[in-house]
């Protein structure tokens, strides 16, 4: 089913059930976001993607990332109210994550260079804005290692039951999707350390360079059905083996 509506007075079309932010971006409208990821279900946590939506005599500020399109609605992406509330939300987020360059840059675009609010009383993960992108990525992978723990101002991202997780594969996808880059990952000869445990690594069978974590390998082999030897070598050694094979064909 198709939905027709207007964004900034321009006619747009979308599929029923699509989210407003995805449609707007497809048409080239610029809406900032921090907690949206194309591959993950939206939850409207950061409230930076606010836009004004009018339909059926109502006019509201909505988070566009998780707002399902409505036939005939009128969307405005940049009204003074939108600007004002985005700026306020950015100022609040800045109190949580003063160390995030991306957040500081975005805030500055809205004239926010300082925050009147204090940092959270307890912050086991400095600069975390509680957007749950990490939790959603880990769920999407089927690992379910992360969860939201606590209530109110004690709310934080953590491991279920607060102990090193058997589910975590050490893939670091959570760290990759985090908008404030606040999840520490450390790679050393001993392995990859993330979320309180050190994961042993699979080493390249030729040169000994790290390839991935052992748990990541076991899980991928079980799930993906590619031959096991696909997971045995580092990028560089694979390329040099391939180049020798190609050379023997060419010359």
């Amino acid at each position: 089913m198709e939905r027709r509506f207007k964004i900034n007075d321009i006619d747009v079309k979308a599929r029923a059930g699509e989210h407003l932010l995805d449609v707007a971006r497809r048409y080239g409208f610029e809406i900032p976001s921090l907690c949206h990821h194309e591959a993950l279900p939206p939850i409207g946590a950061c409230r930076i993607c606010l836009v004004e939506v009018a339909w059926g005599g109502r006019r509201e500020l909505c988070t566009s990332c998780n707002f399902e399109v409505i036939e005939g609605m009128q969307v405005t992406t940049d009204t003074p109210a939108v600007q004002h509330h985005r700026a306020m939300n950015l100022e609040l987020l800045l109190a949580r994550a003063p160390g995030s360059a991306r957040l500081r840059e975005l805030a500055a675009q809205y004239g926010v260079r300082r925050t009147r609010f204090g940092p959270p009383a307890t912050s086991p993960l400095p600069n975390c804005i509680l957007c749950e992108l990490c939790v959603r990525a880990c769920e999407q992978l089927g690992n379910h290692a992360l969860t939201m723990v606590g209530r109110g101002d004690k709310k934080r991202i953590g491991l279920a039951f607060n102990s090193p997780s058997e589910q975590c594969t050490g893939c670091a996808s959570c760290a990759s999707v985090c908008p404030t880059e606040c999840i520490p990952v450390k790679d050393t000869a001993a392995g990859r350390t993330i979320w309180g445990q050190t994961h042993p690594l699979v080493l390249c069978k030729v040169c000994g360079a790290p390839v991935m974590t052992e748990r990541q390998r076991a899980k991928a082999i079980a799930k993906k059905g590619l031959p096991e030897e696909y997971y045995d070598f580092c990028e560089s050694c694979k390329q040099s083996t391939a180049s020798k094979r190609f050379a023997s064909i060419v010359w």
């Binding site: 990821h37 194309e38 591959a39 993950l40 990525a137 999407q140 992978l141 893939c171 670091a172 996808s173 760290a175 990759s176 999707v177 390839v211 991935m212 990541q216 991928a220 993906k224 590619l226 696909y230 997971y231 070598f233 580092c234 990028e235 560089s236 050694c237 694979k238 390329q239 040099s240 083996t241 391939a242």
Partner: peptide
């Protein structure tokens, strides 16, 4: 933009490309 950065693709490319 759907990439979540798990790194598996680079691990399995048989040519290291």
């Amino acid at each position: 933009e759907r990439c979540i950065g798990c790194g598996l693709c680079a691990v399995v490319c048989p040519f290291g490309h």
